[in-house]
């Protein structure tokens, strides 16, 4: 993995070489704060917690994370730099992991920049900062799972937009599977055991457990497994289609 760091660095700084990164961060912050105050009614809830913020993130990520991931492989394939990349002494795994981690780190930066929300609730009351920390951690891992799906869909096509749309669709399904409203509908005609399994496959049930402050290793293992599956598919697709 000697070439991991140069690859990571190039990819991470690459986000900031174009104005897209700044636009992305600004819109993400507006949207997340907007959701927290106007949809989540942070003030009216009269509680010093970031629950209203965390509850909307799975939906915001649905759009934002595929937007961060769509460029990663589609652009390499469109511009032909993939041929340059894979004739340098770089392994496929190195490149896949470096790109993923660069995107993940960028999402981490965007997430960290929501810190004024944390300052606000601490100013207004006495929240349980342990729970908030767990919430951020859950968000970060969930973002990673979304991103691994987006990396995979980005590798499928030379067109970023196609990668983006496929990413949104797959992530949407994974969110739906664990979303209470959706599983309630399913419960009306499917046996309870099956519903349990289905909701375990989705993102939301695992995220909610963590965001309530329950740092269960099983939930973290779930997200890490989701990342590994996404990146493995990514590698398979690249091996098959890098030269086409």
């Amino acid at each position: 993995m000697e070439n991991f760091f140069p690859l990571f660095k190039r990819e991470f700084l690459g986000y900031f070489r174009s104005p897209v990164a700044y636009v992305f961060i600004v819109i993400f912050l507006w949207a997340s704060v907007g959701c927290t105050f106007f949809l989540g009614n942070l003030y009216d809830s009269n509680q010093a917690s970031l629950d209203p913020f965390f509850n909307y993130l799975p939906w915001l990520f649905l759009i934002f994370v595929p937007a961060v991931g769509m460029r990663l492989w589609a652009e390499e394939r469109r511009s032909g730099t993939i041929e340059l990349l894979f004739t340098l002494p770089v392994t496929m795994v190195e490149a896949v992991v470096a790109k993923f981690l660069a995107g993940w780190a960028f999402l981490g930066v965007a997430l960290a920049l929501t810190f004024p929300l944390w300052l606000t609730v601490n100013y207004l009351g006495k929240p349980d900062n342990g729970v908030i920390f767990a919430g951020y951690l859950g968000c970060f891992f969930m973002a990673g799972a979304y991103l691994s799906v987006s990396c995979f869909t980005s590798a499928l096509s030379k067109n970023q937009v196609i990668g983006f749309i496929l990413g949104v669709v797959i992530c949407f399904v994974l969110v739906l599977l664990g979303w209470g409203v959706f599983t309630d509908v399913l419960a009306s005609f499917l046996p309870a055991g099956l519903i349990d399994i289905i909701s375990q496959v989705g993102f939301v049930s695992h995220f909610q457990a963590i965001s309530r402050g329950l740092l269960d290793s099983r939930d973290l293992i779930y997200f890490v497994s989701a990342i590994v599956v996404g990146l493995s598919l990514n590698t398979l697709v690249l091996n098959a289609r890098k030269a086409s």
């Binding site: 760091f5 190039r10 070489r17 032909g80 730099t81 004739t87």
Partner: peptide, 25 residues
């Protein structure tokens, strides 16, 4: 290796790009 039509990362400057390649090398 110089691939056909010399693909490179367009958003990087010449110096950034060559430094990147040197690191990978």
């Amino acid at each position: 290796y110089l691939p056909e039509s010399a693909p490179s990362y367009g958003e990087m400057t010449v110096s950034e790009f060559l430094c990147f390649i040197a690191e990978i090398r």
